[in-house]
């Protein structure tokens, strides 16, 4: 309906404006946008090839030729830092929406359906959540390899499970309200009810949850790379860089500090954005009505 489309666009615009008005939102959005731009544009901007080894100096300090110095193989740190987020952002950028969609739909459906399927599904969710976080990822990767085609579905599946919980709780809250009863009484089909009545009311919660999920997935991805289960060398990745460089920390600290700063600023940006989004959408459980 035209009415719905107009109001969604207008609302999105309004939300964005409000977020930018908050300091946390402005900083967060700036950081995220900066990193996204960096990830997209870096291949054309980097001074060196990430594989190129400079025979003259390994573990060199900052210089005119290498602004952040070189790593233990003589590769330019600046180049590798600029490129280091690409794979992480690409994979998590796709896996997060997938996790959100599958977890969200499953959770909403369970919230509406109730009964036996709900009980059984929640036991399964609990069981999966009981597994120590990184474990299934490690196992699957060990067996199937570290390619993107393994990482992506694995991350999407396992990070979608907590989303089921959140979506189900949000759906419960909506289902208890009278406009759902009104829709049922009119005889709308359950699928229509989910699509038209429930989903628009849970998207707010899911958006905030999605932002937080993305940041956790990035952390998880970096941890995987750090442990050697993520991006394979010689491709640059921040987690991998920290792992490689920490042995030489006393000699060339920049090799560790640079990727740390890059990763941290991205995560901080996402978290600040999620925080500002939550406050703007009123999910912060803030003050009560004034009058």
């Amino acid at each position: 309906m035209s009415g719905a489309a107009i109001s969604v666009r207008a609302r999105a615009g309004g939300v964005l404006r409000d977020m930018l008005a908050r300091p946390s939102g402005a900083i967060g959005l700036f950081l995220v946008t900066f990193h996204l731009a960096l990830a997209i544009l870096s291949p054309w901007v980097v001074p060196y090839d990430y594989k190129a080894m400079d025979a003259t100096g390994t573990l060199a300090g900052p210089s005119a030729a290498h602004w952040l110095g070189t790593d233990h193989l003589g590769r330019d740190v600046l180049t590798r830092v600029m490129l280091g987020g690409r794979e992480a952002l690409l994979i998590t950028g796709i896996a997060t929406p997938v996790a959100l969609v599958w977890g969200g739909l499953a959770g909403v459906w369970l919230g509406l359906r109730g009964g036996w399927p709900d009980e059984v599904a929640m036991r399964l969710v609990d069981a999966f959540l009981a597994l120590p976080g990184i474990l299934p990822l490690l196992v699957l990767i060990t067996v199937f390899g570290t390619g993107g085609e393994v990482l992506l579905p694995t991350l999407a599946f396992f990070f979608g499970i907590p989303v089921i919980r959140v979506a189900r709780a949000a759906a419960h809250e909506v289902v208890a309200r009278d406009f759902i009863s009104a829709a049922r009484a009119r005889g709308h089909r359950p699928l229509d009810i989910v699509r038209r009545e429930i989903l628009p009311n849970v998207t707010d919660t899911l958006l905030v949850e999605g932002a937080m999920r993305w940041s956790w997935m990035l952390l998880g991805f970096s941890a995987l790379s750090f442990l050697g289960f993520g991006v394979s060398p010689p491709r640059p990745d921040w987690g991998l860089m920290v792992s490689d460089a920490r042995v030489y920390m006393s000699l060339a600290p920049l090799g560790v500090i640079a990727p740390v700063v890059a990763l941290s600023t991205l995560i901080i940006g996402i978290n600040l954005t999620a925080d500002a989004l939550a406050k703007t959408l009123g999910l912060d459980r803030a003050r009560k009505a004034v009058i």
Binding site: M1, A4, R177, R196
Partner: peptide, 26 residues
């Protein structure tokens, strides 16, 4: 059926036009 609490019986995310369209379409 019409319900008691008007805050609860209308979907806060739908415009009045959408709300009225539901039965018309159905």
């Amino acid at each position: 059926m019409i319900f008691q609490n008007p805050d609860e019986s209308l979907n806060p995310r739908q415009t009045v036009g959408d709300i009225l369209a539901q039965p018309l379409r159905l």
